[in-house]
Amino acid sequence: MSVSANDNAARPSLRGFLAKYSVLIAFAAIVIFFSVASPTFLTPANLFNVLVNNVVMLAIVALGLTIVISSGGIDLSVGVSVDMASMVFVMLLAAGYSGVTGVAGGLGAALIVGVLNAILITRLNISPFLATLGVLFIGQSTQQLATSGGQPIYLTSGYAADQFNAIARTALFGVPTPVIVLIVLAFAVHVLLHRSVFGRYVQAMGAQPGVAWYSGIRVSRELSMVHVLCALLAGATGILLSATVKSYVPLSGNAFLLDAIGATFIGTTLSRERKPSVIGTLLGVLLLAIVKNGLLLVGWNFYWQQVGIGVLVFLVLAASFGLRRAAH
């Protein structure tokens, strides 16, 4: 298998090229299509709107999943981390605590989810899929019990709303704070994953867990770190989400899960070894966000958007996997 892959690298073919850049080609084609189909698509105001409303939060969750998927695992409980951070953050503000305390409390709640995942996976040897599935169920129950069955908490005015605005409605040099948070986090995760010793360990665990263990990498310590980081990133998303919509809606975090997994795996098609990367993930998120926005602008309703996104993801994956298989 690896031999044929090397042969293929030596003789780059058109199919190989198409397979490698299928995401970029699809991305360019989609931008061109929507620019022609809708006069408002390529306006700065619209692109800004896409960035702030569709990209930022999904991207931060997807960054966390990028780390986890790089390590060869998965985290189905990112929605719980989003929700728990959001819940504690909003409840603390509702009780009159300061914004800083609220943010710290929210991140602390997400941290607990991450530590729980880490213990289940590294100490009890449960596979990441099942461990995080179990945590997802427990997290859902916890929220239902804490909110008498899923009652949302709205804080649209007063003290808490000011705290929310301080996070979501401020800007630095004209760039909204949530976008700055995304840029900082994306840069940090990029350095961590692609330029640090930790990142190299994570990639090694993802490629060859057995070899990583025999090479002296402390697999359980690094894996714990991976899951804690993922939960914290999801927690940051929960805080940004609550601050933006000025409320906590129970069980709303799960909506990110499938899109974030999709975006991360779309990103893996950029590399020949199918490794997740921060740049690939961000591209995947952008692709999903632009399709959603574009379909809305050309008048497709919400329901058709979902079909459109499913078909698009399917086609991109088919092009990438299918052409690569043909190129072998």
Partner: peptide
């Protein structure tokens, strides 16, 4: 077709099909 014919990871292939099926139900 996606898993066997195109060699897409089952997790991903069925995730994309999930979106298509759910969207078609809604429409």
């Amino acid at each position: 077709v996606a898993v066997v014919g195109l060699g897409i990871l089952p997790l991903l292939a069925t995730l994309a099909v999930l979106n298509v099926a759910a969207g078609m139900e809604l429409t």
